[in-house]
Write a protein that binds this DNA or RNA. Structure first.
Lengths: 179, 179
DNA sequence: CTTACCATGTAAGGCGTTACATGATTCA
DNA sequence: TGAATCATGTAACGCCTTACATGGTAAG
């Protein structure tokens, strides 16, 4: 049973940029990585404690007037661990779409039901695509200011390409459903 | 804690087509649903037993000369359960690509490392795309013979569109990495 | 005669979400 | 003053994979 859990490197990756609190990490994941990764407080906070025990990050109390706040900073050992993982081959890229599951079994449902699922899917994809284009627009002007921006942009471009493909598929699928 | 587990409906969906054994179900998932869904024996066999206890499937011993074999057949109650789920809104479509995670943190690695990951990713996608095109070619001529084929084809088309987009992205990403 | 595949199943354990618990601050 | 948000954390529990256990058959 090798180390399959990715939460540690996700945290180290985010902390490699700058010291951050658990709460902010969660926000970053939800707003910037959400297209291809997710995490909950229930996994973030315990993992941060673990990383500290292992000496991969250090914690610092930065509470301001009663508002509890803990900033975590990556250590040299943590950065080494991150770099190490970065060189390892990719283990798993996974796409798990309940929408496709329902469509695959579509013969058991009314075509109108399937159409509804496709339309709901399309709506969601269009909304997400719009957000990504905005994220892209905000990164484009600053892409040369920090090396990291260039890479963030690459993942955003991936999302845009993929979502555009999803929408094209929706249009074809709707046409096919209506013969 | 609502019923989040999807394995039951996956099994019911596959059994809705025809009676099948656990082993064959696993094969079907690995060969036809693998692009958007997965399951292991460790989840399939216990779930099958559970479905039988709940009266959603029936089991029948079809062993042939010492080779143990159990075929499961969906019941009316099972079919009803499947139809019910099919009308429910989609709960989650999730894409979780470790490749994108490594690229997102790419600023911490050498560009050559990232390039390697992209090339490995591209290679895998091209291989999978080729498989899907073959699956498509085998379904195309029989698509009107069974209603289910039409739906299988739709999910394959989804994979093709998506993988084509991935490859286009790979080409752009490689260009960007080399300035 | 051994390798690959057919075939069913269990046990252990990891991973991660959900729900809960707590309390401060900001803003309408 | 009440709702939303900031902020940290724990406990329970569900789900699934991995590894193990077992044994038969087909093909070279």
């Amino acid at each position: 049973m090798a180390n399959k859990r990715k939460i540690d490197v996700v945290l180290l990756g985010i902390l490699s940029h700058e010291p951050t609190t658990g709460y902010e990490i969660k926000q970053q994941i939800d707003s910037k990585l959400n297209y291809f990764w997710g995490a909950s407080y229930g996994s973030i906070y315990p993992a941060l404690s673990q990383l500290e025990r292992d000496g991969l990050v250090t914690k610092e109390d930065i509470s301001t007037n009663g508002r509890e706040k803990i900033a975590y900073t990556i250590t040299d050992a943590g950065r080494r661990r991150l770099h190490e993982w970065l060189t390892l081959p990719i283990e798993k890229d996974e796409l798990r779409y309940e929408t496709l599951l329902k469509i695959y079994f579509g013969a058991e449902a009314e075509p109108e039901e399937i159409l509804r699922h496709i339309e709901a899917f399309e709506k969601k994809v269009r909304r997400d695509l719009e957000n990504m284009r905005q994220f892209e627009a905000s990164l484009e002007p600053v892409r040369h200011m920090e090396k990291a921006h260039e890479y963030y942009l690459m993942t955003v471009r991936f999302g845009i390409y993929t979502y555009e493909a999803h929408i094209k598929w929706c249009e074809e699928a709707k046409r096919r459903l209506c013969h």
